[in-house]
Amino acid sequence: MGKVKIKRKSTLIDMTAMSDVTVLLLTFFMLTSTFLQKEPVTVITPSSVSEIKVPTSNVVNVLVSPQGQVFLSINGDSDPDNAEKWGTEAMRGEALRTVAADYKAKTGRDPGITNVDILKFQKNASFGVPIEKMHEFLSLDQTKQDAFLGQTANKPVVFGSLKPSDIGVPFKDIVYKDEAGNQIVTNQFQMWMRAIYNSDNPNMGEAIKKGEGIAVKSDRGTKYETIQHVLDNLQTIRMNKFSVMTALKTEAD
């Protein structure tokens, strides 16, 4: 009896076509995507029928957490020619310097922001600590910063003098006297917004005037009084035109 010879067949599959497809897909995703911004609190925005897209350049995002903590995120001009002067990082650095100087002029206390702090600040997507504690906050490493901002009420995280109540740009009144001797009340949130508005970047000021430069973002379930507080502060500094972030309404809504 002759042995039945099993023919050995090669199991090689030509993967070239598959590779082509995946590379194409990869290119597509890399070109069309914008990275998710890291945000200290996750919020689900309410839905609306409005179809205006959020701008990605020359906009300040004001994120209001359900507890009323406010985080700001500055996005500068997207034009690469202006990146050095008015780009996101340049604007962040400028804003921090302006506010630190402003704070010192108004309260007499120096927040002690160093050049290293400014470099670190420029890399952070959003911020929300009082200016007087900014130096201490920026001295922490990234994981500690995240742990501090992302803490929950039942698990408080304390680093040095940074307490859970230090999360968010403060709205505490700062009273000072102007040159004419009039008493003026302001707060750090207003100081930040003014610093951004008066920055060297003319496009930013223009965008804020038109109402596209400020985007307020908050959760569906946040109480109106919490947000009204923020809106009220914006009105006080005459930034009464702004936009509100919403999600696109689906059929079910």
Binding site: F29, L36, T45, E51, L231, K241
Partner: peptide, 24 residues
């Protein structure tokens, strides 16, 4: 890599609604 990009990106940009409030 594709999986990474798919998970880390936002395809849909959120919408905005513009509001004008009176001055204080």
């Amino acid at each position: 890599l594709i999986t990474f990009f798919m998970l880390c990106t936002t395809m849909i940009k959120s919408q905005t609604l513009s509001i004008s409030l009176p001055t204080n």
